[in-house]
Design a binder for these strands. Sequence first.
RNA 1: GGCCUUAUCGUCUAACGGCUAGGACGGCGCCCUUUCACGGCGUAAAUCCGGGUUCGAUUCCCGGUAAGGCUACCA
Length: 472
Amino acid sequence: MSPRVRFAPSPTGFFSLGNARTALFNWLFAKHEGGKFLLRIEDTDKERSKKEYEESILEGLKWLGLDWDEKVERQSERIPIYEKYLKRLMDEGRAYFCFCSGEELESERQAQLSQGLQPKYGGRCRNISKEEAFKRAEKENHVIRFKMPSHTVSFSDLIRGKVSFDLDLIGDIIIAKGFDSPLYNFAVVVDDEEMKITHVIRGEDHISNTPKQIAIQEALGFSMPIYAHLPLILGPDRKKLSKRYMDASLRDFKDRGYLPEAFFNFMLLLGWHPSVDKEVVSAEEAINDFSFKKVQKGGAVFNQEKLEWLNAYYLRNLPVERLAEELSGFVPGEWLEDEDKFKKIVQIERERLRHLTDFRDTADFFFVLKEYPADLLIWKGSSKSVMVDNLSFLSNVIRGIPNHELWSRENIDKYIMSVADQKGRGEVLWPLRVALSGKEASPGPSDILYVLGKEESLKRVEKALKRLASEN
RNA sequence: GGCCUUAUCGUCUAACGGCUAGGACGGCGCCCUUUCACGGCGUAAAUCCGGGUUCGAUUCCCGGUAAGGCUACCA
């Protein structure tokens, strides 16, 4: 039977790094096995679930290229299904109404805690007769509790091996606030069964929910899926990513200029390792190579530096067209008027970028030459008069470079370098480069010349000459 | 407190029970070089502690320790 896995986020916050990683591993496993990857929105918490969060999740998955099979399921649209099973548990005496107040429960909890016991519901309402319970339920506040058995359950985790829990320590958990409002641990079990989920792949923070879910499965006569609990992604403090730290929306990473390819690759390496030792792994390779055997057990600290490095790597290795397209969202509209020019700039500047957002400030001089101090034109240890001589000479050389098809990067470089080798590289290349870019750091002069064209380049050289002259 | 999980360079990680514990990011140094960047080369840096099993433990077992997760009418 081909596997069916699901990514089941709750829309109570923006799509986060942790969410994304869980989705990624589900997706990889499904693709690797030729199975289905389903998306289920767990919006049973009516107060905290918001439409914009759901949109954020969908948007994030699309950005990363994690496409799902079948339609988006929402728990809020499946209420009758849960009701059916809830009634069945009630009928069979495996669940019951509980009328205890919050204060009662809290004081019980505190008492147990002070005795060093694991807090657990004592079962006060467990023995109220069914008739009485239904009668009281008509006017009293109540919830539905599951009668937790007291045996030991265990499951074989694909990542961790055998894990066992003593159900006796757990107590009767609340599985619904009413027939029309199921709670997480119950809804998950019902959905996974109804949706024929074969593998539950989720974060390690769910390990302790697993025995509760298994107990409910047993009560309902469902089969147990295979579990795989992924290690958590940690902040620099080695704690689960906090809401305010990296747990920000994936959208923020996009806005800060990260490429989806880089981000995908980065998450992949957080807890998983390819069978051959390498850092750059494409989605396709990851699918082919994926295995839970290579998934790490311990939590992984989010390493910003490595993400930066991967992003820079993809920035300089993606096809130019693709990169230009990504970059186009981060620059003023005028830059895109001459598509050919834009692509040339992208090609030249790409190796200097770490984020898409860097492009705007590094490439601006191709469009507008900013003011710069005349001193910047003077190569270290050299003099103004030499700079003036060299720039004047260069001006003539540039004028003499043939236009059209001979105005090529290679040909320009030939002309410039012959001057540079004659008169000294620093004395020639530095002032030319500054004249053309107005910057302390930039690509080489031949590259800039190539993009700017003869006319604009000559104008900038003249400007530099004037600037040097007016300094006296 | 209780339950569960985990433990290799600062970080991400590799290593059928068997070489000087390997790679990557970051750091440092050198080279390339008009600048920046790219690239190349080199270098420092780790098996949590204590027992056991074994000819031999990073690896298997036990005990500590530490870290993390959960302990909701959230998911």
